[in-house]
Amino acid sequence: MKSLFASHNPLSAPDVQLDALHKLELIPFSERIKSAGLEDIKPLPISILQVNLGKMCNQTCKHCHVDAGPDRKEIMSRETMEQCLSVLRHSNIQTVDLTGGAPEMNPHFRWFVQELRALKKHVIVRCNLTIILANKKYHDLPHFFKAHHVEVVSSLPHFTAMRTDRQRGEGVFSKSIEALQKLNAVGYGIVDSGLVLNLVYNPTGAILPSDQKGLEAEFKLRLKNEFNIDFNALFSITNMPISRYLEFLIDSGNLESYMEKLVDAFNPLSVQHVMCRNTISVGWDGTLYDCDFNQMLELPVNTEKRNIRDFDEHALGLRSIWVDDHCYGCTAGAGSSCGGEIA
């Protein structure tokens, strides 16, 4: 399967994606938050820098909001990583969340992690699991993660092969199970090891995620009984109606009903806790965004300077956060963020 970008699909263009949402004539998200008594979404002090190391990935998942894949060549340069380090050296930001694509495929990944740990930052790596088995040079990743006390967050949309492979590609489930066993073998996800392994659940279809605790209990039971796998927590994340998931919604005739579900499930309480309030997302080229989803829609932060090389924490604290109708994905039901439920 090719990315939308490589297959020249019009939906690879952010404005085409937003047009598809606007044509539904939903109550605009910006108005919906006002009717809930909120003027706009105000930034809090930045506590997480989410750095997208590139769109290159060994997988081509059907729901990927990044449109990542083996055919994507955009990756962060060492120079941009050095600029991130420079910002972090003089900042109170404590957590750095590394994402992609497969962040491990960036040739400067290990160096970057080591430098971040030298700054005593808490480092999260969003590891797709199969990368550990993809090539000999990645086989030692569990040991590398352990040596640098990295928190690992990995996608596993279901505890069955059928559901997982349908979203992430043929054979991904069995490789993911093997990778999880390797992570467990070095201590990840094991009680009192101090090595955190969290899993991410995304629904495999045009449905919303259910109660996170209930799903976590089911995942723990099934993965333990069938594969002797342990993990710490399950993050239940709503699929955003952008990029390849948007393509699926349109092709399957589910776009309108899915968006209606998101709008009907709008939860004003979740707005207080959306991740764009305390996170800044850095694109592979250093551009700054309110979140990873705005990054993929090419909606940079609403400030004069929009690149990590010109990082101005004070100006970012005064900005208005860009919102559009895709934001309903973060405020439906119990809400959604890169750390799962928020309300």
Partner: peptide, 11 residues
């Protein structure tokens, strides 16, 4: 059907 799938049941 939606609710059971959302709650993690398989087909």
């Amino acid at each position: 059907t939606s609710d059971t799938l959302e709650k993690g049941y398989t087909e």
